[in-house]
Design a binder for these strands. Structure first.
Length: 660
RNA sequence: GGGCCCGUAGCCUAGCCAGGAUAAGGCGCCGGCCUUCGGAGCCGGAGAUCCCGGGUUCAAAUCCCGGCGGGCCCGCCA
């Protein structure tokens, strides 16, 4: 392989080395697979133990030999003819420790970086996959809140990351417009006399209020009726109901103060109706397309809400390739077809008197492992239809999953959905498998994430108690604006505002993506708003500084002269070596983050890189370096780091302003 | 009652899947650095029974079993 073909220099160095180890082992009579060896390679915990190392315990055990003896054999062989990118090999208590020849490795790094330029870090897989990512998919009944924010940021970042890995990605938003929640909103909208949305309020916010008022009133009237009935019969139950009623009345009074006219009309109109029955009727009419006027209302309300949601997402730099409507899906033949297959399936059954798919027969270790489901999970049958014949969300999701696979000819479908939906997502997979869609079942990924909590706040969008994502964005912008005014070197208001946006949005995205999805996030505003290290503005600032150094270098000395770089000088300073090593590892870091679907790996990496770079240029100045060979080395390091910072931020969906 | 996820310094987080050499960062705290490329920065310091108890192993934060604590799920909602 020519160096011009190398995209991942660190992997290249390691595999060159490991191949020699394999040969040595082979000469000693131990045949070990190359990949096995590569997997064993690890990063020593202490710098003194070298740049990378190979623990020999497993191999030694397999062949019943002393690991220290084995290590010494390997070291002897490699030392006699040192591989090009190594300077030393040592045998320490069963490990072989490898020391990189930094001048050579730096030369390799710069060759790759010069060759790929802005594309450094882009390591396409051999066989790109077609991947659909469905994310956000919020019910179009209220504005997005911080939990949706986590979903959107995860989905969008995964899309960017997988594209960087060469996959062909399509993002989709599933508009859940036939669920109960939209029906409630629609019911409220109609009973409020189809009011025109006010001009001075974002449409999703206004609809959120309408939704919350409707919901709260329905619950209040329901509770009142129930309380009336139990008053004499069951005193304990009665008291419980009254207590719940009290809380709801408090919520109602909050809601009324926000929008009194709307509240009063609905309070009057819902008072003496059987609201539950009417909503059920409404859902039925929608699913069976019995009322064109109703469909018109539905579309109007949903579009209005989506308009607001889209606006929020655009601010976060998130867009979608496709918007899918649950109603379109249901009204087309897709759902009907899947029902037909289900009714004729050997897994078909009745559960709680409703048509269902029996999934218990599929509970076996091998299948569950293949589908990524825990065997200890008890999975009840999947109910397909309500007694009135209307379908349920998961039934329609069954059809939708097939649409996602077929429409895009996808090899894999990733659903970014909260952890609270693990059970229905497992049912979905198993049902697909049961109905014969085995490939789809295996390649359907539920990317599950935990909740986002705001300290001191119990959120409920049903009751209209929540901080919206818009409000959080607004707060972040204000704070960013104050900080920028304090520190910026930029002069025009336009430039400043652009940086304000970059910082505020970056800080939100960074906070939401930096914690592993399996952990709940506490969205502490003050912490997210802090511009300290380990936050997006810190990375952006580091990038701007690197950019600044390069600009000054160019003004004073012209372009970097790669031919005159003094590679030996990389060894003069420990941090130069650390930076070279980190830069070498960038492509494999991107690859791992993408392959493991773990963007937080990239966050961890870029932080380390920024830290190291900041401390380096402080002790080892670039522009003031008098020796041209060394100066070009330093400028080339700076250039490399700048490219990596910019690429990483781009992958995380965070803007990297050249100046701040 | 059953299931899923989480538990790492005062606080937040990485490492756990594929066990390995002195547990890695950040916030906060204490002390230092503004005449050198932008102080949104840098240097130094204190701070950890890796929730607890067993087990497997030459070796456990990591794997297995049993507890404890927190969140979530167990609907003809999504």
């Amino acid at each position: 392989m020519q160096t011009s073909e190398i995209t991942d220099p660190y992997k290249w160095i390691i595999s060159q080395t490991v191949e020699r180890v394999k040969e040595t082992l082979s000469e000693l009579g131990y045949e070990v697979d190359l990949n096995t060896l590569l997997e064993l390679v690890e990063e020593p915990s202490v710098e003194a133990y070298g740049d990378f190392s190979l623990p020999l315990f497993k191999i030694a055990k397999k062949y019943k030999v002393n690991p220290i003896k084995l290590a010494s054999n390997i070291v002897e062989n490699l030392s006699s003819k040192m591989p090009a990118y190594l300077i030393d090999v040592k045998n320490v208590s069963g490990y072989v420790n490898f020391y990189i020849n930094y001048p050579e490795a730096t030369k390799l790094l710069f060759n790759v970086v010069r060759n790929l330029g802005e594309k450094y870090g882009y390591v396409p897989v051999d066989k790109p996959k077609r991947i659909v990512i469905e994310h956000t998919s919020a019910n179009p009944v209220h504005p997005l809140h911080i939990g949706h924010g986590r979903n959107s940021v995860i989905g969008d970042t995964l899309a960017r990351l997988l594209r960087k890995r060469g996959h062909i990605v399509q993002t989709r938003f599933y508009v859940n417009d036939l669920g109960r929640q939209v029906a409630v909103l629609l019911y409220g909208y109609i009973n409020a006399g189809r009011p025109k949305p006010p001009e001075n309020i974002k449409p999703d916010k206004w609809l959120g209020q309408l939704y919350a008022v409707t919901n709260t009133l329905i619950e209040i009237y329901e509770l009142k009726r129930e309380a009336e009935k139990t008053k004499e019969a069951d005193e304990e139950r009665y008291r419980e109901l009254v207590a719940r009623l009290d809380t709801l009345l408090a919520v109602a009074s909050e809601l009324r103060s926000v929008n009194p006219e709307l509240f009063d009309i609905l309070a009057e109109n819902l008072k003496s109706k059987d609201n539950e029955a009417e909503i059920q009727e409404l859902m039925k009419k929608l699913e069976y397309r019995e009322d064109p006027k109703l469909e018109e209302d539905l579309r109007r309300v949903v579009e209005l809400c989506l308009k607001g949601i889209r606006e929020t997402l655009r601010v976060l730099d998130i867009d979608f390739d496709k918007w899918d409507y649950e109603s379109d899906l249901t009204w087309s033949s897709h759902v009907k077809k899947i029902l037909e297959i289900a009714f004729n399936s050997p897994y078909f059954t009745y559960y709680k008197n409703a048509p269902a798919i029996d999934l218990t027969k599929l509970a076996n270790k091998d299948l569950y492992r293949k589908l990524g489901i825990r065997l200890s999970m008890e999975i009840p049958p999947l109910i397909l239809q309500r007694s009135d014949g209307t379908t349920l969300y998961t039934t329609r999701d069954l059809a939708y999953t097939l649409v996602k696979f077929n429409d895009f000819k996808a090899d894999m479908v990733i659903n970014v959905i909260g952890a609270e939906q693990k059970l229905p997502q497992a049912q979905l997979k198993l049902a697909l498998y049961a109905l014969g869609f085995k490939r789809e079942a295996v390649n359907l990924v539920h990317y599950s994430y935990e909740m986002v909590n705001i300290p001191g706040m119990k959120m409920s969008s049903r009751l209209g108690r929540m901080i919206t994502l818009d409000e959080i964005i607004e707060l972040m912008l204000e704070k960013a604006r104050r900080e920028v005014e304090k520190r910026t070197t930029l002069t025009t208001p336009e430039e400043r505002e652009e940086v304000v946006k970059a910082i505020a949005i970056g800080a939100i995205r960074y906070t939401l993506i930096s914690t592993s999805a399996t952990k709940p996030v506490v969205f502490d505003m003050d912490q997210a708003l802090s511009f300290e290290t380990n936050a997006a503005p810190y990375i952006q600032y580091t990038h701007a500084r690197a950019n600044n150094i390069l600009r000054k270098h160019r003004e004073k000395y012209g372009e970097i002269n790669w031919e005159t770089i003094d590679y030996k000088a990389v060894e003069e300073n420990r941090k130069r070596k650390q930076l070279v090593k980190l830069a070498l590892k960038y492509p494999s870091t991107i690859a791992k983050a993408a392959d493991d679907l773990k963007p937080e790996i990239l966050v961890e990496y870029v932080n380390k890189l920024a830290d190291t770079f900041n401390s380096w240029y402080q002790e080892d100045p670039v522009i003031h370096e008098l020796n041209p060979g060394k100066r070009n080395l330093k400028a080339a390091i700076t250039y490399t780091i700048k490219i990596i910072l910019a690429n990483t931020l781009e992958t995380l969906g965070i803007k990297a302003p050249p100046r701040m």
